[in-house]
Design a protein around this nucleic acid. Structure first.
Lengths: 192, 192, 192, 192
DNA sequence: GATGAATGAGTATTCATTCAT
DNA sequence: CATGAATGAATACTCATTCAT
């Protein structure tokens, strides 16, 4: 039921996790609680489903950015930009969703999309990327992808003033370059 | 009250956050609930106080490792090692504590010790470090310190098999070297 | 829920306000607390609803007495008698209910039925009453009705020995007569 | 301890009965709770003592007004005026105090000062009053004194707009005159 | 007398979940 | 399939009172 997701998002946005209760969700969604339980086994399942959808969307956005050859911007920079933008949007709800996953010990879930991006990276090596992450072992790949993701997330959630600045994008991009042993990126492509 | 912290830790360890209720804490700590509320204004305050203590301890451990000149191991590697060890210990409780801070929007609190480590780094530049992070702007410093911390934490909480491996330590150390433009570290110092 | 009112009355009668707690009410009423809260938003609402019902019943009793032409007793005396009887019954519960209204600053609620009686009085002037309270301004009407009500209540709640005596009824009736400038009432109708 | 009464009054005035707790009283009064319990056996005792003091003060004020021959105003009117003024002052605290007495079934306490005024009335009959309440039996005296007191209180606590008007004073005064069979009072003495 | 740390019984209210209709 | 009335376990927190110092 799409109505349930919509209602949940609205409630989460307005009242935070505290206001998120099944009776309220059913009311806002315009269905009965019985119906709600027909679609989801329990409250957490709703949050989980939303979190996964959110994660998939983010992964798709980053993968698309990586593969999009239409601009002259370097793929690594495009990916960094997509990650930053992802954390800049979604606000409160996104954060609560991530939290839910984390507190349920589902960090692997959180990790999944990042890993999938890494897969795309490897598969496209030599194609979208000059010389690629295939030179990295699995540990190196983990460190690199997780670093970009984590640092972008931290900057956003810690409310750092530079979280969406060009300088921040530059630094994250540079991290990729130096870590992969690429020569410096010169295309300081300004964000539109 | 030390007893309260001890009891809280035990309860958190065994039953997780769900089992963490004031009546139980008082009981396990061997004090009355009234006394509990004499020391803490509410349940969350206990968690917050514990989290801060934990964070301070972690910061001290990493700072000490950074400044400890007794071994022949490179300071950057010593720091990486301390960070990894910190996340390897503390288990469930530590994790719940961090979560609490995060879900209360106190990400800055989480960030504080990392920032303090960065301060130590800068202060000691040219002393413990050959040429140092003073070359980095604030954004670069943020990216570097947060990356090390976040990636080490992610690997631990996601239960990655290599979370405490030599290879992982190497990669994180290498990240620092390449990011600071240092020549490769050769002292692949084995962990004790 | 009638069961809730019944249970509340019983509890109030036996244990007073101190024993009046939601868990107990639900238990005695044979419903779950959840159900209780389905019908009333909070504990006070139960008391309020009961108080209003009580007040309405009292008003109806007095109004009926006033309009009842079946006996040869003077309407004013009939009303006085009804008021006295009202305070003589209901005991502890009635008292606690009135208190609740009063302590919630809802004195107007307490006043309402008395005002409604005054309305009946004015409407029926020249009909049930020889020459009537229409000669009184609003202030005079207030003083008269409130005096009868308050004095009867005081005598009852202060446990005065004469609270239900003929002499007391006579005095209150006389108060009405002299206040309205009527000639003395001679029908000292004995209470059955 | 005067400090305790003062603190209690302040707390009652500001936060109502809900804010009235022993720890708070001790704090505001600047004494320890232990000391508080050295002077009063329990919380209610404080309220009771305050209520009695308030009642005595009111009684003294009315008695003084009754006996004060300095003005040309009729003693009955002077008493009515004093009663009205008493209820007009004291506000929230006075009300809570009266409530306490009432809800503890100490209505007799509430009645006491009124009875004492009646005693003064009888004792001074033929002196301050032309022909007096000695013609009334005890029931009549009760009805008269209680009526004046109750109606003045009701008007004040129900927030009637005329509670302090000349018209209200006139009506209550007239009640006394007609009840005692006195010829109409002509000295519509304006309130200062 | 004064102190104030400690006590702990007591309670209103919430909300996930069920299941008879 | 949908409904929503009913359930009741669970819990944070208050505050009058005590008593060792």
């Amino acid at each position: 039921m799409e109505a349930i997701f919509g209602a949940s998002a609205r409630i989460l946005e307005q009242g935070g996790r505290a206001a998120f209760n099944t009776n309220r969700i059913a009311e806002v969604a315009g269905v009965s609680i019985g119906t709600l339980y027909g679609y989801f086994p329990n409250k957490e399942a709703i949050l989980m489903a939303m979190a996964r959808a959110e994660l998939d969307a983010a992964r798709d956005r980053v993968a698309a950015a990586l593969l999009d050859a239409s601009s002259g911007v370097h793929p690594a920079r495009r990916a960094v930009r997509a990650v930053i933008e992802t954390y800049a949007t979604g606000g409160k709800v996104r954060r609560i969703l991530m939290e839910t996953l984390f507190s349920h010990g589902r960090s692997e879930e959180l990790a999944r999309p990042v890993g999938e991006i890494a897969d795309v990276l490897v598969a496209q090596a030599g194609n979208v990327l000059p010389t690629g992450p295939e030179r990295l072992g699995p540990v190196g790949l983990y460190v690199l992808t997780r670093a970009i993701d984590s640092v972008a997330r931290a900057a956003s959630y810690e409310g750092m003033s530079f979280a969406q600045s060009q300088a921040f994008e530059d630094e994250l991009t540079r991290l990729i370059f130096v870590y992969l042993g690429w020569p410096e990126d010169k295309d300081n492509a300004p964000r539109e």
